[in-house]
Structures are given as structure tokens and as C-alpha cells.
Write a protein that binds this DNA or RNA. Sequence first.
DNA 1: GAGTGGTCTAGACCACGCA
DNA 2: GCGTGGTCTAGACCACTCT
Lengths: 235, 235
Amino acid sequence: MKNLPQYRRLYNILREHIKTGTYAEGDLLPSENELSIVHGVTRTTVRQALSNLVNSGYIKKFKGKGSVVTSSAKEIGILSIFGTSSAFKQYDLKTRIVKKPTVQKWSDNFFYPLTEVEIKSGCIKMERIRLVNKMPVFYEATFLPNINLPRFCNRNFENKSLFEILSREYHIEITGGNQRFSAIEADAFISKNLKIKIGSPVLYLERKIETSRNGYGFYSSLYCNTDIYLLAGRF
Amino acid sequence: MKNLPQYRRLYNILREHIKTGTYAEGDLLPSENELSIVHGVTRTTVRQALSNLVNSGYIKKFKGKGSVVTSSAKEIGILSIFGTSSAFKQYDLKTRIVKKPTVQKWSDNFFYPLTEVEIKSGCIKMERIRLVNKMPVFYEATFLPNINLPRFCNRNFENKSLFEILSREYHIEITGGNQRFSAIEADAFISKNLKIKIGSPVLYLERKIETSRNGYGFYSSLYCNTDIYLLAGRF
DNA sequence: GAGTGGTCTAGACCACGCA
DNA sequence: GCGTGGTCTAGACCACTCT
């Protein structure tokens, strides 16, 4: 099961400890030396794991001081949500499947250029809506090249993380990606799904997500109502 | 002058070569072994430089193959612009200063929490508009803590990169940051500055930029017309 | 099989913070 | 002055691509 690199294993362990509150916001993580001894790896490997934690926004490092846990925020993929009102300290985060994963052709004007292999393989499309405190906030369509993902369409994604399923079931880890942002007016479709007025400003994202499986990436387009919650991310 | 770490020096060298076209889009960079020999550093150091190039979107690495130059795109700070129409392969990028750097107080409801030191030091504010092919696309207000930046307010920023001036004149390197996105309706002020109709959807960003100077960061808020150009970034 | 990037080891010296 | 993270060395083995 586990042929994960050690820095990835350590990353997952620490991330889980942060998410579950073993290390709370503001706490200092054990020092790099301590972690390297406890987990039986060199400091280089520890630093690689911590560096990933910094990039995903879980910790901040301070020279001469240590690594401080900065966030227990819930994530939506790589971006996280950010409540503008301090009343929303607690996020009740749910995912509703609008369209189950289905094999189909790539659309003609797909928003990223595709490789020959991707086009030939076809596309698995799924559509989801994210609810924050029971309000629809995101509408997301995800497109995965249909390459060596056995039983994918039969899995249950309701309230489950796509990234986690890809990691656990297919050993596919997200390594990065790029995204394009714009502000548009809600059309009838978006208006219905996000329960906002037609013409309201909506944040629109197109993303390509890259993975540890060589040459394999997937895509998503995302509409977000930012009236109450903002999208936040690191760079 | 130069107490830059070696991986930073190498990063700057390679970035310059990519920007000026010595390594063109699609080219392979010299291998990590070759770079380590040529520049007299270990492969670890080379990899740190390349890793930064990946994060800023200049190259992509392929196992067993090499590092491919992916972009000669012009940047605006950390984000880059992306023309939706292929007609806009050439970006004529200009910056117009709307308000020269001025020392003032921080506003009461500043969009990021400030430290005691920052509040006491006061704030240098400047306002700029970015023009792409002579059309105003960004309006950006930048706020810097007024700490040890001699002669800053007297410098000429017209069509110059703030990041480059910070690096060259003050040895301040940008190390990362975070940002929040939302879509809003243009008000009268934005409408005038970006020459769009009141009520049009506008991309709004609030960012905190972190630097290599310990504890020193600065802020910017940014309004962007995404009708023609999108904002793009890596994660 | 030769060359590439990915992972990892076992050290070293430094600048910085804190007590 | 001690412990922290930041930088760096000089190796090693692996999986992968290309020919």
C-alpha cells in the first residue's frame, strides 16, 4: 500500500495532527531536529515535509523560533474559504453531487489545451456544489482524463474529498497546478445553482491540477459566490 | 552588495535568461548535474533554484527528461496576465502612478491585522494603474510599513517594478504571501479608473506579501477588469 | 545503457530569537 | 549561549525517458 516518499508520509501525519487539533493554531511544531529523530529521517527530509506544509498554508516558519501552526481552516481543494464576518468562525462544509462521474467526450472548446492521449482517452466529468453553512457557495465541474482509474465512476463522492480518494485509492498526489481568475455576471444556470440574482458578480476560475503521476493532470471550472465568503490562497 | 544565497543568485540568472530569450519557451534547461558543475554548487542548491522557478511558473520538470521552459509571459507582481484572445500575444505593459508614495496613517479598518510596530511606524501608500495595450486593467493600492526605507518616497516608480526596486535598493526579496479573491460590482471610483460601467463585475484582491526581511511584509488591494485579460497564478 | 530528475543520508556553518 | 530555522556540501540509490 505505502510506497509514499517519506517526506509525504510525514507531511500527511503532521497535516492530520493540525487538522484534528493535536497541534492547535498558534502552537509551535516540534523542531526540525526533534522531528528528524522521532521519525527516523534526516533534517533534509523533515524540511521538505515542512516546506509543503508552508505552501499549503498550515504553518509559518520563523528563523530562530520555530514552526507555528497558522491555520485550522477547512480547505476546498487547494484554496480555502475565508469568512468576512467574524461570526462565521465555524464552517459547516458539505458537498452535494449534482452530476455523478460520467465518461464522455471532451467538449470542443475546452478551456485548456489537451494532449493527444487525453483526447483519445475521453473524459470523466462530475459536477458538485459546495455548501458552507447550508448556503451554496461553489459550483464546480471537474474533468479527469479517463486513464487507468478503475471503478472511478461507481465511487461515492458525497461529502468526500476527491483529492483524498485519488490519493488513497489510486496513489495520485496533487503536486501543484495553475489557475485563472475572472469576475463575471451570473447567467441563468449559475443563478439557479448558487441561488443568486442573474447579473450578480461571480468569481470564475479555470484550473489545471497537476499530479505525481507523470503527465497526468485534471481540470476544473468553478463558479463562486463571494458575497459572504472569500477565496483565499497562498503564493 | 551581494549577500544573496547562492540558490537565489542562480534563480535570478536563470530567470533573466528565460525572460530575455536565451532559453526560449519549450527549450530544455541544462541538466541539474550540468548546472551544478558550471555554477560550482551542489545539486541540492541547483534544485532549490529550479524549485523556485517551478513555483513562479517559468519551468516545468519532467522525470527522466529535464526542465522545460514553459513561459516567457510578462508578470505583474506574482500573478501574470493571460489574454483570452490569441490576438493578444504581445502585451504592451505600462504602469501609471496615480498617487506617489506618501507617508500617512493606516486606515482604521485595514484589511489585514497589523502588528503594534507596523501601526506605530505609519504607512507608505501608493496607487498605480496598470495598462495592458493602453487599456487600464488593474487599479492597485499598495501599503508598506514605513520601516527603514530611506528615500523611498522620492523614487520614481513610473513603469518600474516595485519588487525590483525593493530587491536592488533595499535587499528585500519577496518570499511568498497570501491573497483573497472576490467578485464585486464596480462602484463610481473603480468605474472611473478602469473605464468600465458602474455595476460591471470586477475582480477584487487583498494581498499580504511576505519578504526575506524578517517580520517585514506589505499589503495591496487590487481591482481588476477581467473582460479581456484574466489573472493567472500557480499554486 | 546513459542521462535525467526524485528521494535521501550525514554531516557542516550561519543568522536569528530568546532567556 | 543555546536552540531554532536557513543554507550548503558530497555523496548515494531509484524510477523514468530516450535511443
